[in-house]
Design a protein around this nucleic acid. Structure first.
Lengths: 356, 356
DNA sequence: CTGTTAGCGCTTTCAC
DNA sequence: GTGAAAGCGCTAACAG
């Protein structure tokens, strides 16, 4: 045994004067004679022994690692989701392997294979490309937001339909009578598609026209938005719509920018409601960019972990779990259905609100 | 052999009618007879065989995993850093194990041990608690921003001194004559402490007083800032300072908020310069929250990975690597040293600039 | 309780 | 080139 050799269980056993099995038991907290346990623990400390995860994994077929596939950690929503997933996994004794797919299908597929290569015990997938056919069978996996057609995997998501429905009703309560839903989506379908459905359903119930601007992969979001808005002015330059329900906060923020550029006041002329609940970093963690139907990120993350681990243990898990979203004021909707004159200089309000 | 059993090399060997060793060679791209290679590859495909990373790792003592310890992925700076580290690692064939330490020392220590447990081949540490004494010896590790006293580990950071120095000069160029440096720091020292040193050095060279508000773990940043500013008004309510160089963008943003609340105009009355280059998510990725001395996040991340991998290969690596920061305009400094009257309504400018 | 032992799946000599 | 065989470090079943 060279002195530079990292100590193995054998070394510990030798030093403690016991057998391999005894050392193993001490390490795995299996009852062992008081005296031997002490000797072993001493030897472990003296040698600076650490279990070799590979050898153990080879035996137990467990890695205590879970892979998380997200499109991009730079997105604050995913960043928070990642943070909470990691937190929960840590509490449960698991480590997180992070994959920022960045829309590269091969990358997603590579990580999906991690589990079958015994590099991970399970996968939480938040993928936006279509990799359904690459999901290894018989592997613990939970999907966030995305329904896989070929391989039925447990799906966790926000209740997007209800969010769309309730958000629309909220806008109506706040005085909006000519809403429009805007959506710029990729060609891949996901649970979030239900937002628009909720909007349409609510409009029907409220006897409102369910206008919408729904584009798939438009080359230029800003231009499309602007064109749409220009198209919806009356002869005196007043908009024929008084509320925008955007498919995401991100898109809502775009709309806000364009409307400001066009000289409209928010929320006096047009109210804007987003979806997701993206929060600004730092100063005030509860500050939203726009009024929004907020997803319960923390609970969603925890639920993903819980379902994944339960499935890994062979438990039966729901194939679909929806968590409710909640409306939160973020400066771009009215605070109540009051006459708009009360608001005064709006941009100043806006700036103040946005902490600038 | 049960049919539900995941196939092993043995199964492949049996099916292909060759020996274990041959299969191993095919997998590891070691020359093998044409015919056998085909047979093996066919068997692999038919069986859906995947190498078991554990068995391999047990032999090779390589995991192809690198652990990254960051305080918090929610912070956009760390989020970007994480993203780039993951990207580079992926290119190099490594996976990322993510640890969000959240200021929990035990968590950091646990991850620092990952490498000695053969769960990771190396560690990139961006830690803010003092865990220097827990760093396992003889383990590939690279530190970002933080100098470890007991264990000399390669350190990668921005050139904070130069950043402080150049930032101060920039403020001076833009007409600032009474700067103050503000800093709210934790009790742990890091490379970023050099920012203030650079500021002081520049002030000396410029024959400026090097005022500063330097607090360690203040209970309430906003209150401290406000008190300081109230203290620095002359009898007519005019501030006796005309520039704030903040230790971080975050702190700069705080200052901006307070100054706005107090009714001062930015940058007309006071210019504000931050440090880090935190960018807003989404709309326009190049949009800063404040004018800032920007860290080259991408290059920093890549450098960490490169140094780590080189060290892992036994190469000799620099004990300290500093990358330059660059000034970028972000709305809170003057665009040139022109008379301030030219600016007109400032808040509007601000709002426009900030994309609101 | 404790020690012995047979592998986990793979890589890697080493003869052939 | 190829196959046989010896482990890598650990766990778990079994005998004592």
């Amino acid at each position: 045994m060279k002195s530079t050799h990292t100590p193995t269980m054998k070394d510990v056993a030798a030093r403690a004067g016991v057998s391999l099995g005894t050392v193993s038991k001490v390490i795995n907290h299996i009852p062992v004679g008081e005296k031997n346990r002490e000797k072993v623990n001493l030897a472990i400390k003296e040698l600076g022994y650490k279990v070799n995860t590979y050898a153990r994994g080879l035996k137990t077929q467990e890695t205590k690692m879970i892979a998380l596939i997200v499109p991009d950690t730079t997105n604050p929503f995913y960043a928070r989701f990642t943070q909470y997933v990691e937190k929960k996994l840590y509490e449960k004794g698991y480590k997180l392997i992070l994959c920022c797919a960045n829309g590269i299908p091969e990358k997603e597929i590579g990580y999906l294979n991690l589990a079958s290569q015994n590099k991970a015990d399970g996968i939480i997938a938040l993928t936006y490309t279509d990799v359904s056919s690459f999901i290894p069978a018989q592997i613990p996996i939970v999907s966030f937001d995305r329904y896989f057609e070929n391989h039925p995997v447990p799906l966790v998501a926000s209740d997007n339909f209800q969010g769309g429905f309730q958000g629309t009703k909220k806008l109506w309560e706040l005085g909006c009578r000519r809403p429009v839903f805007i959506r710029f989506r990729s060609k891949f379908s996901s649970e979030t598609d239900k937002r628009l459905e909720g909007y349409v359903a609510a409009c029907k119930e409220l006897n409102l026209p369910s206008d919408c601007l729904d584009l798939t992969d438009p080359p230029d979001i800003d231009a499309s938005l602007k064109a749409y808005l220009e198209d919806h002015k009356d002869s005196r330059g007043k908009l024929t719509l008084d509320g925008i329900f955007a498919n995401t906060d991100h898109q809502a923020y775009h709309a806000m920018k364009i409307l400001n550029q066009m000289g409209y006041r928010i929320p006096e002329d047009v109210q804007i409601l987003g979806f997701d609940g993206i929060r600004k970093y730092g100063i005030d963690d509860s500050a939203l960019y726009v009024s929004s139907m907020c997803q319960p990120v923390e609970d969603l993350a925890y639920l993903c972990v819980e379902i994944l681990l339960k499935k890994k243990e062979g438990g039966v898990v729901p194939s679909l779990s929806l968590l409710p979203v909640t409306y939160e004021y973020g400066g771009t909707t009215r605070q109540s259905n009051t006459p708009m004159q009360a608001y005064g200089a709006s941009n100043e309000q806006q700036c103040k609100h946005l902490g600038i």
